[in-house]
Simulated scan of single mutants.
Amino acid sequence: MPDYSLSGKPAFLRVFTLTALFSLSLISHGAHAEQNLPRVQVVQPEVRELTEWKEFTGRFEAVEMVELRARVTGYLDKVHFQDGQMVEKGDLLFEIDPRPYEAAVARAEAELARMDSQLKLADLDTKRGERLLTQSAISQEEVDTRRARFQEANANVASAAAAVKTAKLDLQYAKITAPVSGRISNRRVDVGNLVGSGDAGQALTTIVSLDPLHFVFDVSETEYLELIRLPQGQDQLANGRAMPTELKLIDEQDWTRTGRIDFVDNRLDENTGTLRMRVVVDNADGVLRPGLFARLRLPTSQNAEAMLVPDKAIVTDQAAKVVMTVDEEGKVIPKPVELGTLQGNMRVIRHGLEISDRIIVEGLLRARPGTEVNAVPYQADEQANNDGQDS
């Protein structure tokens, strides 16, 4: 029977066999130890050129909004519009019963005619008195009296003429027209009701312009300083040049709407510490309405190199933002970072990382600072499949 024991082999074969067995034991032990380490997936930062944006929330406002009130008192006689329709500047909207004001015009014109006849009489008396004065047939005092009566009659004519203008204005105000173009609201007063004039009277309706619209938003002191220190921020915000912007509604995914900043307030609000800004936005499609909320973004850098990491790799440690990295020895090293804008599912990192750092993306719950981990390359597709299975 063949002898397979080591004792029957030459010495060099016994040494070789023992060495191989020892090496296999070390490899097995190392693999077993690595298998017991927490497994994390890591990725290196991505560097690419991009345009960074700052996003804000605001509300649309009408460029022009008019609350229609009657300028004269009277009974509402006619309404010439449908609730909610578009109107043009100068369109007739309401009519107040004009008969009292037509009578007032006739009365004022009659008074003007009476004053005019008195003026002519006073003029004749004055001229006659001046001729008699040259013949010493009348005293100077009488001539002065006639001249004063002429001046009084002249003033009465001017006063009557002004009264005619006032009466005609009141008659004109009995027809209420649209002062601006836009969309009108519903009528607040029905035909037959008595409407008052001025602020004491009830508002009849409102009109708002729709194209273009204003988009109003507030920025903090820090955000304002960031914008004003851009390469062209001083010219665009401080010196009156329009800064381009992009907008989207709450149900829109893409930034398809554009506008331009045309107004920056002259002071920060003392209570909120914010600065009011305004954007002019075209509304050719008529979708936008005053009062709608929307998101706006401003470019803070253009075609600049930026370092990006997956946003889910960011960890919050009290007030600081931290990224977990793995060093050459396989130990977890936390690094505080300064965050930039969000680009899709990637976050811009302004400071705190090197391009050679290995960022933990998956397995953050198993990664403790200072502990050793088993770092493997991040597989986005694999993680997506795992998430689908878990769900």
Results as ranks from 00 to 15, higher is better:
Leu249Asp: 00
Pro244Ser: 06
Leu249His: 04
Glu246Gln: 15
His214Glu: 06
Arg260Ile: 01
Phe215Cys: 04
Glu252His: 10
Leu247Cys: 05
Phe217Ser: 00
Gln253Ile: 15
Arg241Asn: 14
Val216Tyr: 02
Phe217Trp: 03
Ala238Ile: 09
Leu230Gln: 03
Glu246Gly: 05
Ser209Glu: 09
Tyr224Leu: 05
Asp262Arg: 07
Ala238Gly: 09
Leu247Gly: 01
Leu213Thr: 00
Thr222Val: 10
Asp262Pro: 02
Thr256Met: 13
Gln232Asn: 14
Ser209Arg: 08
Glu223Trp: 09
Gln253Pro: 08
Pro231Val: 10
Ile261Val: 14
Ile261Leu: 09
Glu252Val: 06
Tyr224Gly: 00
Met243Arg: 13
Leu225Asp: 11
Gln234Thr: 10
Gln234Met: 13
Glu223Leu: 04
Phe215Ser: 01
Ala242Phe: 09
Glu226Cys: 03
Ser209Pro: 11
Glu221Phe: 13
Gln236His: 07
Val216Arg: 10
Gly233Arg: 01
Gln234Phe: 14
Met243Glu: 07
Lys248Arg: 15
Val216Leu: 06
Arg241Glu: 14
Gly259Leu: 03
Glu226Trp: 09
Gln232His: 13
Asp251Ser: 14
Pro231Lys: 05
Thr222Gly: 02
Ala242Pro: 10
Trp255Pro: 12
Glu226Gly: 07
Leu210Trp: 03
Asp235Ala: 15
Gln236Pro: 06
Ala242His: 11
Gln234Asn: 11
Gln236Met: 12
Asp235Trp: 04
Leu247Arg: 01
Glu252Asn: 00
Asp235Asn: 09
Pro212Gln: 05
Thr256Ile: 12
Thr258Ala: 12
Glu226Ser: 12
Asp262Thr: 08
Ala242Cys: 00
Ile250Phe: 00
Ser220Asp: 10
Met243Cys: 05
Asp251Lys: 06
Asp218Cys: 01
Ile250Ser: 08
His214Asn: 07
Thr256Arg: 13
Glu221Thr: 15
Tyr224His: 09
Thr256Trp: 11
Arg260Pro: 00
Pro212Ala: 03
Asp251Trp: 11
Leu249Asn: 00
Gln232Glu: 11
Leu227Ser: 07
Asn239Phe: 13
Val208Asn: 08
Ser220Lys: 05
Asp262Val: 11
Pro244Asp: 09
Pro244Glu: 06
Asp262Met: 08
Gly259Met: 05
Leu210Thr: 15
Glu221Gln: 14
Glu246His: 10
Gly259Pro: 07
Thr245Phe: 02
Ala242Trp: 06
Leu210Ile: 13
Lys248Trp: 08
Glu223Asp: 15
Gly233Met: 02
Leu249Met: 13
Val208Phe: 07
Thr222Trp: 00
Asp251Gly: 07
Arg257Ala: 04
Ala242Met: 10
Gly240Ala: 05
Ile261Ala: 02
Trp255Arg: 12
Thr256Cys: 07
Asn239Gly: 05
